[in-house]
Design a protein around this nucleic acid. Structure first.
Lengths: 239, 239
DNA sequence: CGTCGGGTTGAGTCCATTCAACTTCGGTGG
DNA sequence: CCACCGAAGTTGAATGGACTCAACCCGACG
């Protein structure tokens, strides 16, 4: 069950057996959420953090106007609300975009990690730092990229992140998002989202049908997106 | 010199005298940067983190098109590249927006904090988590708020953050950004930025002249921005 | 007095939105 | 089995927002 988490952490630095078994002691329980359900709700003060084991989820905020904006997408192996360990109050919600299986880690036990296993603690910290790096990349995409480029960038990012946890198949992966949900990622209207997807399809960089995205020409896609994976901190080095 | 840092950390939780003196040992040196200079440059691998003591700075990325996007603004007391302690490689640059005085903290010493002073380590971690929370709020603003609302939100955020470190005066503060720089925050063209500022001025919520912003009607401004300070984690509680 | 960087304004174009209609497709019940 | 339904995707047309290009203003400074 913890494989995707191990894969993510071990990607940045060596993860010792002792650390693995410590994580296995800290993360426990299990629960399923169906599409549209909140894994964590805005305003709550969770006493445990939620590890996404299987499925796709998203952080979001809702405005008075009713508009919704996703601020991140979460893939298997992500601690979706690890930040609540120290932030205490959730300033946003987290919703399941597909059937999600999760496990839990008590905040008291996470605190013990920071006290008894500082290296593992740093790896968890790093996890939240990569999160922030992704946020920054999204800000750049929203502010200064064309909409097609933004979408292309999202595809590149998701492909890499899913590949790390073994959720890609050759050059394709499953993307269960509706166009309305994608619109909430890019901050667009549904209608325009549809046209943007259309023009990405026309570029022939990807093949995108029935929730399966196949990257036909990575070179071209990365160029459209100006994609530079540095921000994902893929290097394995002492942290 | 470390006052703004103490103020920021002590805002979230009690900061013991021992922790203060530990910080004083870790943070040392000093340097000045003039407007437009990079405090930290993209692609570098710093071996120390930079604490902003005085002045205003911004994280940014530049695209091939030449467009620039700021991903955060940094106020006194911010560790502008604390994330590089674990991310190792800077995926963006940090530029001085006014005359900046900074100090440095060796990464080796930061690591010692995580090993010997876990509570202080958590407070530093928290610092980066608040950073990420701000990023998320920016994403929402870029995606789903009107441009005036986005600008109003920025003003609210900056006012609170500057107030924490004692850099406000009644209801006003100094904002040394040119309209071109503000455009790089909101992701707009300079011309349109000018019109957005104009329409915020017309709202009479703020008085904005010669780089001094005075909030005339906080109630109205916060309402235009739909501003909810939860994400800044202002509460003082055990972390 | 002239220059230069920043701010402001106008006009035309293009992008993105809304509103609305229509299609496609899987599921469900008669 | 198929007729119907609803959710998601697609398309067109009209409106309004944001961009570019261009001009002009203004105060600081040499």
């Amino acid at each position: 069950m913890l494989e995707p988490l191990y894969l993510q952490l071990a990607q940045h630095d060596v993860l010792s057996d002792a650390e693995r078994s410590m994580l296995a002691q800290v993360v426990s329980g299990g629960k399923e959420f169906s599409v549209g359900q909140d894994l964590v709700s805005e305003g709550s003060r969770p006493i445990y953090s939620t590890l996404l084991v299987e499925g796709l989820a998203a952080r979001y905020k809702v405005l008075e106007s009713g508009g919704r904006q996703f601020t991140s997408l979460q893939v298997p192996g992500d601690f979706v609300d690890l930040h609540a360990f120290l932030l205490k109050t959730m300033d946003h919600g987290i919703v399941a975009l597909s059937l999600c299986r999760v496990m839990f880690a008590d905040h008291t036990k996470l605190r013990v990690i920071t006290e008894k296993a500082p290296h593992l603690g740093r790896l968890l910290w790093l996890d939240t730092l990569v999160d922030a790096a992704i946020h920054r990349e999204w800000i750049v995409a929203m502010g200064r990229r064309s909409k097609v480029s933004h979408l292309a960038h999202l595809i590149c990012e998701l492909f890499i992140r899913l590949q790390v946890v073994g959720h890609t198949n050759e050059m394709s992966f499953n993307l269960p998002l509706s166009q309305a949900e994608l619109a909430d990622v890019l901050g667009l209207s549904v209608v325009h989202m549809n046209r943007v997807i259309g023009s990405l399809r026309k570029s022939a960089a990807v093949n995108w049908a029935s929730h399966t995205v196949t990257i036909v020409d990575w070179q071209l896609l990365a160029q459209m997106a100006e994609f530079d994976p540095t921000y994902l901190s893929m290097a394995n080095e002492p942290r």
